[in-house]
Design a protein around this nucleic acid. Structure first.
Length: 301
DNA sequence: GTCCAGGATCGGA
DNA sequence: TCCGATCATGGA
């Protein structure tokens, strides 16, 4: 039975896609599990927003190259199909990436096997920047709640009961008090600084895409509340700079235990990740993160 | 009630 | 350059 209030279609990738790993690995905060409309044969099903349009993404099998899509009526299906392909980085040769990383070492081989089909997403740079500013010193459920509150309070409707991520202008106009009410906490002034710079043109997020890596990082780190880790995440998840290696507490633990003989220096962890995994450091980091979060607790890692 | 979270900033050595 | 205290809030 096909749900009458949505349009369903199928998107075919050239390589395989693991929707659960890609949407559930913590790189994006606005996807949430939701039953795929009109179908019960989906092993995995999420609802979220891509480029201001609400969308269901589903998969019957995590190791295939097809993704099922459902859209609100009136949404152009072929345009949405292209957005999904772009958002999920269809042009990344995941088989070559995984083959290359698997040969690095046994730990990485296990992480790749577990998260096979994981895609580094191409998120909107502004949403990515804002989200990771808000991620500082929060757990993932709290980040998701914070971002959802912001969208519902300041974002426009996206269809299917979802909301667009608020623009920099909307955040700026709302002000710190509203941000606090959405759960931003002490990060309110950081998000305000980011919104002001973007809205006023002091930070040109489109121009950042054209900059050499370190210049792009410097531009992002001018924003209050954006340090080495947040800037790395924005470069990786918002600009697809696959050569960066974001180090959070979990990657720090992984690197300390498996690659640095117990050393807990965060900068050393980032350097070692880049040295070891080179142009695929970003993918390596995300496989390690997804693997660690699903196999360890904070105390035994 | 306690602990900690996909860290960054600031001031003082 | 490096170290430690501090930040506001909620989930576990």
């Amino acid at each position: 039975m096909i749900h009458s209030s949505v349009n369903s279609l199928e998107v075919e990738f050239s390589g395989y896609v693991n929707l659960e790993a890609s949407l559930g690995c913590g790189q994006a905060f606005r996807w949430h599990r939701a039953a795929f409309p009109g179908r019960r044969d989906m092993q995995v099903s999420y609802k979220g927003v891509i480029a201001s349009t609400a969308i269901f993404l589903g998969q019957k099998d995590s190791r295939t190259s097809t993704v099922q899509v459902a859209l609100a009526p009136g949404i152009d299906g072929s345009a949405a199909k292209n957005k999904v392909l772009d958002y999920c980085s269809c042009s990344d040769d995941v088989e070559a990436i995984e083959r290359s990383l698997t040969m690095k070492d046994d730990v990485m081989a296990r992480a790749v096997e577990f998260g096979s089909g994981l895609r580094i997403l191409r998120q909107d740079p502004w949403e990515c920047l804002a989200s990771y500013i808000l991620s500082v010193r929060k757990n993932i459920p709290a980040i998701k709640c914070n971002v959802a509150d912001l969208a519902q309070t300041l974002g426009r409707q996206a269809g299917l009961g979802e909301f667009q991520f608020p623009t920099a202008e909307a955040v700026l106009e709302a002000g710190s008090d509203v941000l606090r009410e959405c759960g931003c906490g002490f990060r309110d002034r950081y998000l305000m600084d980011a919104a002001a710079r973007v809205a006023w043109g002091d930070l040109d997020l489109e121009a950042v895409a054209q900059l050499p890596l370190e210049e792009a990082r410097d531009a992002l780190m001018k924003v209050k509340g954006v340090g080495p880790k947040v800037s790395s995440c924005v470069l990786l998840f918002g600009y697809h700079r696959l050569e960066v290696f974001p180090v959070d507490v979990w990657i720090g633990r992984v690197m300390s235990r498996f690659y640095l003989n117990g050393s807990c220096d965060l900068r050393a962890a980032a350097d070692e990740g880049i040295r070891r995994f080179g142009p695929l450091a970003g993918y390596a980091q995300e496989y390690l993160y997804y693997y660690a979060r699903n196999h360890f607790s904070a105390v035994n890692l």
